[in-house]
């Protein structure tokens, strides 16, 4: 697993929001999109279901649909347009399962 992808440049005084990514605790901030929350801690959002490797989003404006992530509770959310909420448990792998994609 590679390190963090996004780099915070400002606005770092916001209240913290606790989520987990692949089971490990991650400290996000209020107002973070899921994408920001994940990518300030990890290098990827998901793994392509077509076997061509990891992905970390692309357009950030809800058009490319390349940043849908899976939550442990089965929900699927578009990471660039969904705000992180406390308790969200995100899975970035491509484990098999009926809704793995």
């Amino acid at each position: 697993m590679s390190g963090a992808r996004f780099r915070r440049l400002a606005e770092t005084g916001r209240p913290r929001v606790a989520i987990t990514v692949d089971g490990a605790p991650v400290e996000a901030m209020q107002g973070d999109t899921l994408m920001t929350a994940i990518l300030t801690a990890r290098g990827r959002l998901r793994v392509s279901e077509f076997g061509d490797g990891p992905r970390a989003g692309f357009c950030l404006m809800g058009a490319c649909q390349d940043c849908w992530v899976r939550l442990e509770d089965g929900r699927r959310l578009r990471a660039c347009t969904t705000f992180a909420e406390a308790g969200m448990a995100i899975l970035t792998g491509a484990e098999e399962g009926a809704d793995a994609f």
Partner: peptide
């Protein structure tokens, strides 16, 4: 007539 189909994103085979 125009029979209608919906298509989902790919899912693991079930």
């Amino acid at each position: 007539i125009a029979p209608m189909m919906l298509v989902t994103a790919r899912m693991a085979p079930f």
